[in-house]
C-alpha cells in the first residue's frame, strides 16, 4: 500500500531530482549531508543546477554554502548523499571542473610567484614529470591577461592586495579550461574594479557555454549577475531561475530574522 499523498509536499521546497534531472544537470546533488561534529552544517540538500548558466548559492552566514561546495568536490567528507557532474561520477569528471577556493584558505606568504600559481592550473595536463613548455607559459600569461594581471606575472604572491589575489585564483581556474566553474565567495572583500573584472570574465565564460556556480553573499547584485539561484540555510529552501525564485518570501524563509524587511525592499526582487 502506497503512503497517502500529502498535500504539504507541494509546498515543501526540498524535492529530490529525478534521474533525468541528474543526467541533464551540470552539478547534481542528492541528499548531501555534511556534519562537523554533531551539528549538521548541510542537511539533506538536493539540487540539479542547469547547464550553461550563472548560478548563485545564497544563504546567511553559517548556512553551509561553502561546505556544500566543498562536499560537492569531495574536499570535505559527506555523511550521506551523492554528487554527479554532467551525469558523471566526480572522479571521472575532474577534468571538467575548476574550483576557486576562498582567498583566505591559503597562506599568501607561500614562496611562489603569480605565474607559478596560474601554472598550477595545468596540473592534470602535466602530471608528475611532463615538462612545462613555452606554450604553457603563454597560455598562463593569456589567463592573467584576461583578469587584468599580466603585469604582475613575476611578482611574489605575498605582495598582492586581496582583489589581486582573487584575480590570480580566477586566472588559475581559467587555465584549467573546464566546463563547470565553482567559485567560493569570489567577491568577498574585493575592490569595485576587481568585482567588475571578475564578473566580466564570468560572463564571457557563460557566453562560451560554460557553467558558473558562485557562493555569493551580496544580495544586492544577485539579480544583475545570476540567472539561477539556490537558497540554502542548512537545508535547501528554494532553487530555480532568479526571475521566479529570488522572491521576498523565499529570502525571508532563508534568512529569517536576519534580514531586515527594509533591506528586502531595496533588492531587485522578482514577484
Amino acid at each position: 500500500m502506497a503512503p497517502p499523498k500529502l498535500e504539504l509536499a507541494a509546498e515543501d521546497g526540498a524535492r529530490a531530482p529525478s534521474p533525468e534531472d541528474i543526467a541533464n544537470a551540470s552539478l547534481a546533488l542528492s541528499e548531501i549531508t555534511v556534519s562537523y561534529g554533531e551539528k549538521p552544517a548541510v542537511f539533506s540538500v538536493d539540487a540539479a543546477l542547469p547547464r550553461e548558466s550563472m548560478v548563485a548559492i545564497i544563504g546567511p552566514n553559517g548556512a553551509g554554502k561553502s561546505t556544500l561546495l566543498k562536499a560537492a568536490l569531495g574536499i570535505v567528507p559527506r555523511l550521506s548523499g551523492s554528487v554527479r557532474i554532467f551525469g558523471q561520477e566526480l572522479e571521472r569528471a575532474r577534468d571538467r571542473v575548476a574550483y576557486v577556493p576562498q582567498r583566505a584558505s591559503v597562506d599568501w606568504d607561500f614562496p611562489t610567484r603569480v605565474i607559478d600559481v596560474v601554472l598550477m592550473g595545468f596540473y592534470r595536463e602535466l602530471g608528475l614529470l611532463r615538462f612545462l613548455r613555452k606554450g604553457h607559459r603563454e597560455r598562463a600569461r593569456a589567463c592573467l591577461e584576461r583578469v587584468g594581471m599580466a603585469d604582475f606575472a613575476e611578482r611574489q604572491i605575498g605582495q598582492l592586495s586581496g582583489g589581486q589575489q582573487q584575480r590570480v585564483f580566477l586566472a588559475r581556474a581559467l587555465a584549467q579550461d573546464a566546463e563547470l566553474y565553482l567559485l567560493d565567495e569570489p567577491f568577498a572583500g574585493v575592490d569595485a574594479a576587481t568585482e567588475k573584472a571578475i564578473i566580466d570574465v564570468l560572463h564571457t565564460l557563460k557566453t562560451a557555454r560554460k557553467t558558473v556556480v558562485c557562493v555569493h553573499h551580496d544580495l544586492a547584485t544577485v539579480a544583475d549577475y545570476f540567472d539561477h539561484v539556490l537558497l540554502i540555510n542548512v537545508r535547501k529552501v528554494a532553487e530555480g531561475p532568479t526571475s521566479t525564485t529570488f522572491t521576498a518570501k523565499n529570502l525571508q524563509a532563508t534568512y529569517g530574522g536576519r534580514l531586515a524587511s527594509t533591506h528586502i525592499d531595496q533588492l531587485k526582487l522578482s514577484s
Binding site: 568536490l73 569531495g74 574536499i75 577556493p101 584558505s105 596540473y123 608528475l128 588559475r172
Partner: peptide
C-alpha cells in the same frame, strides 16, 4: 623531484589540490 608538483600544490592550496585529483 618526482612528486614535486603534487607536494608543492597540496602544501600551498590543499582544497584546490584535492579538486584536481591530488
Amino acid at each position: 623531484f618526482v612528486f614535486w608538483r603534487p607536494l608543492k600544490l597540496s602544501t600551498f592550496d590543499e582544497g584546490f589540490a584535492a579538486t584536481v585529483g591530488v
